[in-house]
Every structure is written in C-alpha cells, then in structure tokens.
Design a binder for these strands. Structure first.
Length: 330
DNA sequence: ATAGGGTTAG
C-alpha cells in the first residue's frame, strides 16, 4: 500500500493534511515516512514545518531543523522561510531572528514573517523598525505585510501610526483595502476606544457594512470599553444576521454583566437557553514529549490549576534546554 | 504531481 520510494506521494499526503487543517495527522504521516526509511526532501520539510507552526510545536520544529541541516537543505530559501515562520509562531523570536540573519537573500515572505514575529509578540517598535529597513532595501510590501504592520500597531495602541500605514498602503502602494484590511483598521480604532470612528468607517463603506466578521470585531471592542449603546445596536444586527451563533449572546451577556445590568444579562442568558444554544467548548493543546496533547476547557478529569502548573514548569524547563541547544546550533 | 508569510473576539 505505502508508496515505497516515491517521496512525492508522501509529500502530497503531508501537504494535503496541512492545507485542510489536520496538522497532527500531517506530522503522523511524516513519522510514517521516516519509519518507512524514505528520505525527506525540501518539500517534505516545508510542509512539516508549516504543521509545527500552526500547532506551536517547538520541540518537533527543532527536530526538523536538525534534520534539515543534516540533509544540507539549509540553503533552500523556502525551507528556511518555513523554519523562520515556525520559530516565529512558536514565540521563539531569538531563534527566528537567528534564521533571518543567516538568510542569503531575504524575500518578501521572510520579511513579513519576521515582522509578524515581532508584531504578534508585543514588540511593535521592533516590527516597525524592520518594516522601515525592508522599505529601505527596496523590497515592496504587499497586503499581507501591511496587515502584519497595522496589527502590530493595533496591539501596541499606536493608532495614528497604524492609520498612517493604512493610508500608505492605499495611496502609495495602490492596494485596495478589502474586508481583511478594514478588519485590521476597525480593530485598531476599536481597541483604542475610538468606537464611533470605527463605526463610521463601517457605515461609509457600503459593501462591508453587512459583514459579520467586521461587526463582530467592533462588537468585541464595544465590550472591551463597556460601550453599551453602540454594543446593543451591533448585537441586534449580528443576531439578525446569524441568530444561531452563540458568541454574540455570550459577549452581550458579559457586556451587561460588566456594566451591572443584571436583568438584561439574565434575559440574554434565557434567550440563549430558549434557542438551545450552547457555548462551544474551549480547546487548547500542548506538546509533551513529542506528542500533541489536547484538553478541553471544561475537562473535569483533572484540575485546571494542576494542568496550568504542569504546563508552566514544563515550558520553563524546555526553554532553558532549548536556549542552549539553539545557541550551539547557530 | 507535492513547498513558506494574515488581523480579530468571548
């Protein structure tokens, strides 16, 4: 059954699983490939690394790094780009920077990954500095680069800067903002409490006025800032559009509760119950000894506190160990 | 034949 020497067939399986979001399964196929004695190539590693990125499976990612060096594939631009992104998504900024520094040529994807690495881990100024350096090296940013830059600003509360980059994107780079770009802008303004400005943008741009994701982004910002009036208005729109989505009711209830409107909060809860809506269970996972362990938010089999404690001590131990290994590798 | 970058909410 198994394609003995055909690495392409294996790669198709691995990348197929990755592109359908089955990351654990894709790593399973990678393990099967190794067990079958097949030699992985650049494409195998690229796909397996993408799976690790999504799972934040740093341990597995580092193993792949070692194999890549052994296979002398560490000059392949795409493999290195995937490796950089893996480290970035795992929050290993120093390792990401190490890979970035050793690239012989830095293409647009690698620039963007490195900007994301900083921007999504609270280092907005580093992200902006890197973006500036990228422009100076005459690399032309695309919409994904701008999304990374604007969201970096959003998380750091740099509203004016974020707005500036949005305008730069539209006016100097001719990128027409679509839903994703507006979503970033609305998040930027909303997080900073400039809710009516955000709402204006939504209203003025007729073709996005009805978009559930954008309304949802603004709704979360209303909740964050306890803005009841606008929040209620948006909740009404959201419930009209998607009456079966429990998240709207949950956020609305929390918004009432945090502004001490207990009667209203109770009404929302009852309404939810009447409709038979249930909260989707929260789910997370952690990598323990090479395997990915899932757990649910309402899992009663062990105490949450115990679990959190275990995770923290494991992560702490892992970080110390990894620091030494990666420094040696570089 | 198969390959890397994307914001957002409780």
């Amino acid at each position: 059954m198994t394609p003995k020497n055909n690495v392409v067939a294996w790669n198709v399986m691995i990348s197929g699983y990755v592109s359908t979001g089955c990351y654990v399964e894709s790593l399973g196929i990678y393990d099967d490939l190794r067990e079958a004695g097949i030699k992985p190539d650049a494409i195998t590693f690229t796909s397996a690394l993408a799976a690790c990125s999504q799972l934040a499976a740093l341990e597995r990612g580092k193993e792949l790094h070692n194999c890549i060096v052994e296979s002398k594939l560490d000059s392949n631009e795409i493999v290195m780009g995937a490796l950089l992104d893996m480290y970035a998504k795992c929050g290993a900024i120093n390792e990401a920077q190490g890979v970035f520094n050793h690239l012989s040529t830095i293409d647009l994807v690698s620039w963007t990954s490195m900007i994301v690495a900083y921007g999504s881990h609270g280092q907005a100024f580093e992200a902006l500095k890197l973006f500036d350096k990228m422009l100076k090296s005459n690399m032309k940013p695309d919409r994904i680069t701008f999304l990374a830059v604007i969201s970096a600003c959003s998380h750091a509360g740099l509203v004016d800067e974020g707005h500036h980059y949005f305008n730069l994107m539209v006016n100097n780079y001719g990128i027409q903002p679509a839903i994703a770009e507006y979503s970033c802008l609305i998040d930027l303004l909303g997080r900073a409490g400039r809710l009516y400005e955000a709402y204006d943008i939504l209203q003025r741009t007729h073709y996005i006025r009805e978009d559930v994701d954008l309304l949802g982004t603004l709704f979360s910002a209303c909740h964050l800032h306890g803005e009841l009036k606008l929040g209620e208005e948006i909740a009404k729109l959201l419930i009209e559009k998607d009456p079966d989505d429990p998240s709207t009711y949950i956020v609305l209830e929390k918004m009432y509760a945090s502004t001490k409107k207990w009667d209203e909060a109770r009404k929302v809860r009852l309404q939810m119950k009447d409709l038979g809506l249930r909260k989707n269970p929260g789910c997370s996972w952690i990598e323990v000894d090479r395997s990915i362990r899932y757990f649910l938010a309402e899992d009663k089999t062990f105490s949450q506190a115990e679990l959190v404690y275990d995770c923290l001590s494991l992560l702490h131990f892992q970080m110390e160990k990894d620091e030494v290994a990666v420094n040696a590798a570089l």
